[in-house]
Design a binder for these strands. Structure first.
Lengths: 204, 204
DNA sequence: TTTGTTAATTTTGTATACAATAATTTAAAA
DNA sequence: TTTTAAATTATTGTATACAAAATTAACAAA
């Protein structure tokens, strides 16, 4: 029936809907975002929609009332930060990752070798998520989370184009972490992200 | 007369006022923030105040409708990120900083040796600002900016207590940058920030 | 055409009213 | 007293109306 989840406030729900519209291309890059129009489509007033938009602006998904269209420079800048933070996280992971998480990490590699595209997308995202969580630093996790939306838009390209060695690189990182070699894990992670960036920029 | 700056929207002005109230201790750590009360004090409606509060929540200056009271762990986490990003920025500065900015950097050191407390606060902030700008990466600059408010609250402690060697460390960093030694600049910056953190935590 | 200017329209910004929820107080029962 | 439940109050969440600003359209002059 027409049951609505009443738990979360409207500004939160509409945030999620709008974000998904952007990530799935329903709202494509460059589209003008008009509060009233979105509000009408969602069946709520402008007030909660306004808040959602502000949050999306914060994440960089909306810029100047338009769906972002990141330039090559934007992506390079984003990845520079990501390389620093995830590189450090990989180093932490080598020291602090527990048995079970280590196993989850390996599963991500395994599934990525034989899964469907959607599965691959998921486990590759999860691979990075496990490592970032190992930093055990909410500030860092939060910053990386904020970048996720744009990274997501971007990563689709890499997987749909089946970048060579991507999974191999994940496996190498996994091995370094398992071996407790933080130095190596960090370097491999940095190179991995740089390769990802270069490959995708090359396609554009 | 009662001239108001009409240029910027109310939500922006009130953001700045509330932020300053927090930074100057007019609103002290733990204080409950109530939209209507703030709105009344500012002579505006809740609508723009609401937006301001959301932005401050974003910066971490308001948490759970209360003025933040960062724990030691919070500060350690924040500084871990700062060390990574500003360390990298210092390395960039060694390669890319121009003559005039280099000179500004030196001025910061000079003034810090003989200025008043307020002047010292200012030039020390500026010292870091110049270096961060040298990263030439808006994403990175933006993240560090977001952390500035909490860092500001924190830095007061360090200067008012006159931490030993603080200016010397700045000068060493300046020298490394001037010499174009990125490796050294990065290491010195990281140590400097770590020392800052440790000193202030020690006082708490 | 192009340019510049005014008018029309759209869109955002702000105030206000009311609804939903959360916090607090009050009062009754154990 | 202490505890619980109900009622009250305070606060946030949402809708709506109107004002201010930005954008677009229309049209006159070069």
């Amino acid at each position: 029936m027409t049951e609505k989840k009443r738990s979360r406030p409207a500004y939160h729900q509409s945030y999620e809907v709008i974000r998904d519209w952007i990530l799935n291309g329903v709202l494509s890059a460059g589209t003008k975002i008009v509060e009233e129009k979105i509000a009408a489509e969602l069946g709520v007033s402008r007030t909660p929609v306004r808040e959602s938009i502000r949050k999306l602006e914060n994440e960089g998904l909306i810029v100047n009332k338009r769906v972002v269209k990141p330039s090559e420079k934007d992506l390079r800048n984003l990845f520079q930060v990501r390389i620093l933070l995830e590189g450090y996280s990989a180093r932490c992971a080598a020291s602090f990752l527990g048995e079970d998480e280590l196993h989850s990490l390996y599963e991500c590699v395994e599934i990525a070798r034989k899964g469907t595209r959607d599965e691959i997308m998921n486990v590759n995202e999860r691979f990075h998520e496990i490592i970032v969580t190992a930093s055990n630093n909410p500030v860092m996790i939060d910053i990386i989370d904020r970048m996720q939306s744009i990274i997501y838009l971007f990563r689709k390209t890499a997987v749909f184009s089946n970048r060579p060695h991507l999974i191999d690189e994940h496996e190498q990182i996994y091995q370094a972490i398992k071996a407790g070699d933080g130095e190596k894990a960090e370097i491999l992670m940095k190179n991995h992200l740089q390769a990802d960036l270069d490959f995708c920029l090359h396609l554009m």
